[in-house]
């Protein structure tokens, strides 16, 4: 601790002249003011995102209702989870590339997945595929503990630092293969699998609590076609239902078809 504070005091004392000291103080003030203004701007954009993309039910999608989920989206600074070059697009209604062939999903898709797993305050959540850490950050506002596993090391390490830096103390990031879940922390009330291969790993179903919910997006990184919601009932390990949910309302199109 002392070693960290030492250089700062040396710097200040070395500013021998009053003028220089004044300039430094002024500079710091401007930076802080600018940062506040910057964050204030983002807060407004974020509010817009929640209002129009999530709660508004635009382009035929179902509006999201859960006030806790909407609250989490108001709080978490999405722009801190996207690459620097894309910060200005952070709150747009689109997925963004984060490198290694991975993306941070559209806000609506993240929100819809979050709502589907019905997170409660006392819940324990598992996420497979941390990516940027945005989904974990959202979950950390809604449940007690979040355990998240990322297979690609640079992404996992960056997400861990980012989440810690933003004060998400109830998130634990592990770099590794998420196929076998996190048995030491199992069972989980809710599981989000953002990196699905051609099947849902059966060990994850086993680590789901009775009454628990698991969600998997299907499609390529830029085109979430459907969300699979797996729910586990209380009647034993085979009491499982999968619901196939289209994140967008394709139903109007189908209702024009026969047999309706």
């Amino acid at each position: 601790m002392s070693r960290l504070s030492e250089p700062r005091s040396i710097t200040l004392e070395s500013c021998s002249t009053l003028g220089l000291r004044f300039a430094l103080v002024l500079f710091t003030f401007v930076v802080v003011l600018f940062a506040q203004d910057h964050d204030e701007n983002f807060r407004k954009v974020r509010e817009d995102m929640v209002r129009t993309q999530l709660a508004g039910g635009s382009w035929g999608v179902e509006a999201l209702r859960d006030p806790r989920v909407l609250g989490a989206f108001r709080e978490v600074p999405r722009h801190r989870f996207v690459p620097d070059a894309l910060v200005r697009h952070a709150y747009e209604d689109r997925p963004l590339p984060i490198g290694y062939g991975q993306t941070i999903s559209q806000p609506y898709i993240v929100a819809k997945m979050t709502e589907l797993i019905e997170p409660k305050k006392d819940h324990r959540a598992l996420e497979i595929g941390t990516g940027s850490g945005y989904q974990a950050a959202i979950l950390s506002r809604l449940v007690t503990d979040v355990y998240t596993i990322e297979i690609i090391e640079p992404l996992g390490v960056a997400a861990r630092e980012r989440l810690a830096g933003l004060g998400h103390r109830n998130v634990e990031v592990r770099v590794g293969d998420g196929y076998y879940g996190w048995p030491e922390k199992a069972p989980f009330d809710c599981i989000v699998v953002t990196a699905a291969a051609d099947h849902i790993p059966p060990p994850l179903i086993e680590q789901l609590k009775p009454g628990g919910r698991l969600v998997v997006p299907i499609g390529n990184p830029f085109q979430t076609q459907r969300l699979m919601l797996v729910t586990k009932g209380n009647k034993g390990p085979r009491d499982i239902r999968v619901r196939d949910i289209m994140p967008v309302r394709f139903v109007p199109l189908l209702s024009g078809s026969s047999g309706q």
Binding site: S58, W59, G60, V61, D93, G219, F222, Q223, T224, Q225, P247, V248, R249, F250, P252, L253
Partner: peptide, 9 residues
């Protein structure tokens, strides 16, 4: 009916 949401389909 779907705006930009048609993209995946």
């Amino acid at each position: 009916k779907a705006g930009v949401a048609w993209v995946p389909f």
